[in-house]
């Protein structure tokens, strides 16, 4: 089901004018920000399809920037997000592409801070809802409606069992899972959507498993890093 709950239909509470081009864009920006794990210093944003055609009129650019600053969809600073980003020293470039994307409202981010880099592609699928389709060249899909763990790891036998066992022991139910491999390097990414928020102590336990490179938590209901 693309739309999972009543608040994806009634809601979000948001600054106008467009749920797909403004609120969805804020959420996409926030997911990218949370996947990077800190405020980016340099940002390159490529817009596809209807995003590319109409982004200025909908304030999509301001909304994406607002999301990268970790704003929520109804943050009154969204109309002035570009100025806020400039004041914080975040460098942002917008590009448009004529390439065909799977969904008409697609955006690709390349973010960097002093220590980290991230690429992410996602789409705004209507009503402010989003779908992430690629993270760091891994084809993984998730909606960020629920708390989500994005885990980079080596593709070793038993890895998924180890991860799910730890979650199970903490009585955390998995709502959705996706996985992608990069064949030769045996690098993998696993995405786990959970029913409830994931405590940091559990994330630390997961990080201690062998051959886990990195874990990022995406939780759009939570403020801050």
């Amino acid at each position: 089901m693309r739309f999972k709950d009543v608040f994806s239909i009634i809601g979000p509470s948001m600054i106008g004018p467009s749920s797909s081009h403004t609120a969805g864009a804020v959420r996409l920006g926030r997911v990218a920000r949370q996947l990077l794990g800190e405020q980016p210093k340099k940002v390159e944003i490529t817009l596809y399809g209807s995003f590319a055609d109409t982004y200025r009129g909908h304030g999509t650019d301001l909304a994406l920037i607002g999301g990268l600053l970790d704003y929520e969809t109804d943050d009154p600073r969204i109309p002035v997000a570009a100025e806020e980003a400039e004041a914080l020293g975040v460098e942002i470039a917008f590009l448009t592409s004529k390439d065909k994307a799977d969904h008409p409202n697609t955006v690709r981010f390349i973010l960097s801070s002093d220590t980290r880099e991230l690429s992410m592609t996602g789409a705004s699928i209507g009503g402010g809802n989003v779908e992430i389709v690629n993270v760091n060249q891994f084809d993984v899909k998730f909606t960020a409606v629920y708390p989500t763990l994005v885990i980079s790891h080596h593709d070793r036998p038993g890895m998924i069992a180890d991860i799910t066992a730890l979650l199970g022991r903490s009585e955390i139910n998995i709502g959705f899972m996706d996985l992608d491999l990069k064949g030769r390097d045996r690098e993998a990414m696993t995405v786990i959507e959970t029913d409830v928020s994931i405590p940091d102590s559990l994330i630390q336990e997961l990080k201690n498993l062998s051959m886990i490179y990195e874990i990022k938590k995406v939780d759009l209901a939570e403020r801050g890093e």
Binding site: I9, I10, I15, G16, D74
Partner: peptide
């Protein structure tokens, strides 16, 4: 009109149709 002027609304189901409900 509040939506078009970048004010706060509830998307029902979207911002483009936020006035009807």
């Amino acid at each position: 009109e509040v939506n078009a002027s970048m004010g706060r609304i509830i998307a029902t189901p979207t911002a483009g149709s936020c006035g009807i409900i």
